Simulated assay, not measured.
Amino acid sequence: MSLARAARSGGPADALPASAVHAFSRRTLLAASGLALATTLAACGRTSPVSGPSDPSGPLRIGAIPDQDPEVLQRLYGIVADALSGALDLDVSYAPVTDYAAAVSLFRTGDLDLVWFGGLTGVQARLQTAGAVPIAQRDIDADFHSVFVVNAATGLTPSDDLALLAGRRFTYGSETSTSGRLMPAFFLREQGVDPDGFPGGPGFSGSHDATLALVASGTYEAGVLNEQVWTSRTAEGAVDPAVVRYARTPAYSDYHWLLGPSAVDRLGEDLPDRLTDWFTGLSADDPGDAEVLELFGAGSFIPTEAANYDQIEEIGRDLGLIN
Rank of each mutant, 00 (worst) to 15 (best):
I140K: 03
V264P: 00
A36G: 12
G122C: 02
S174P: 01
D89R: 15
T47I: 12
F144V: 03
R233S: 10
L271G: 02
S19T: 14
D161S: 09
G201E: 10
G52K: 09
D194M: 07
T98H: 11
G110N: 07
A132R: 09
S159A: 12
A306D: 10
E314A: 15
A307D: 12
L225N: 00
E227I: 10
Y77F: 15
G299T: 14
S19F: 08
P199M: 10
R27I: 12
A290Q: 12
G122E: 02
P199L: 08
I140W: 01
M1R: 13
L225P: 00
D310W: 00
I315D: 01
R317M: 02
P12I: 10
G180F: 07
G131R: 11
T40V: 15
D82Y: 03
L188C: 11
A213E: 15
R75Y: 01
Y255I: 00
A307P: 01
I79T: 14
L29E: 13
D209V: 08
R233N: 07
L37G: 09
Y100K: 05
T154K: 03
L295E: 05
S262D: 13
L165D: 02
P202I: 13
F107M: 14
S253I: 04
L271Q: 09
G203A: 05
F186R: 15
G297S: 03
S19P: 04
D265P: 00
S105V: 01
L3S: 11
P184D: 04
L35V: 14
Q68K: 13
V239Y: 02
P158E: 07
R5D: 14
A307C: 02
F148G: 03
